[in-house]
């Protein structure tokens, strides 16, 4: 069990020696320019703790326990104070401080102090728990799993075909007519309806201080921005 916790600590340390995360909440405490140094320092401590765990002695065990409690405190603070920041614990992948990061700190602390009471094979559920609780590792198992599910079930395979108004508006934007008329427009789309092969879009417009309605006719089912027609009514 100690080996597992030591491995997690070394993994965390290696990542921190590589420069750490730019988006961790750490910058808020120590200042942006010191983040790299502080990350290295923390990495050093983590390596020492890992070594302390591998050599059986009570000091190493309780030091690691205290470390994880400290981590728990830091993460709880980051979650409240800097909700947009990343955990910055194990990888540079953006992983906001969530319930899982907090639970992982608790599990690690628990594993350290209960290591002697548990049989050796407890390390397997322990490792699984750490992987499941690590948002940084989602890319290796959770995302592929969800993609696979989407592939099987096609939840968005709604086959009803239509031309979204957004698409017509985009085609309108490409036309020379729109380019010339743009300075007159005052509003977003007022109304839209279909007329044969055309989709009509209206806007509020202003010309020489007078209000008017700008009307565009855009081909609906084909892409031909040069065919767009315009009137000011």
């Amino acid at each position: 069990m100690e080996v597992l916790v030591a491995a997690v600590l070394v993994w965390a340390a290696v990542f921190k020696f590589r420069g750490g995360s730019q988006r961790s909440a750490l910058g808020k405490i120590v200042g942006e320019h010191r983040v790299v140094t502080v990350f290295r320092l923390i990495g050093g401590v983590e390596v020492l703790l890992a070594a302390g765990l591998l050599v059986p002695n009570p000091v190493g065990k309780w030091a690691a326990f205290a470390w994880f409690l400290g981590l728990l405190g830091y993460l709880s603070w980051a979650r409240v104070a800097e909700p947009d920041s990343s955990c910055g614990c194990l990888s540079d992948k953006f992983a906001p401080v969530g319930v899982r990061a907090l639970a992982r700190a608790v599990v690690l602390a628990g594993m350290v102090v209960t290591a002697e009471l548990l049989p050796w094979y407890a390390v397997i559920p322990g490792a699984v728990a750490i992987v499941v609780l690590s948002a940084e590792l989602d890319g290796y198992w959770l995302i592929p799993l969800r993609r696979w599910k989407v592939k099987l079930l096609h939840p968005l395979g709604n086959t009803e075909f239509h031309i979204p108004v957004t698409s017509t508006v985009q085609q309108l934007h490409k036309s020379q007519v729109y380019q010339s008329a743009y300075p007159l427009l005052r509003s977003d789309v007022l109304d839209t309806w279909d007329e044969g092969e055309w989709r009509i879009l209206t806007y509020s417009a202003e010309r020489d201080g007078e209000r008017a309605t700008a009307v565009f006719a855009v081909p609906r089912d084909r892409y031909d921005p040069e065919a767009v027609r315009f009137a000011l009514a």
Partner: peptide, 18 residues
Amino acid sequence: LTSAVLGTATTVVGATAL
């Protein structure tokens, strides 16, 4: 407005060519 932009009617007043 449809007739203004597609020009199917001749009674449109105030419609401006581009």
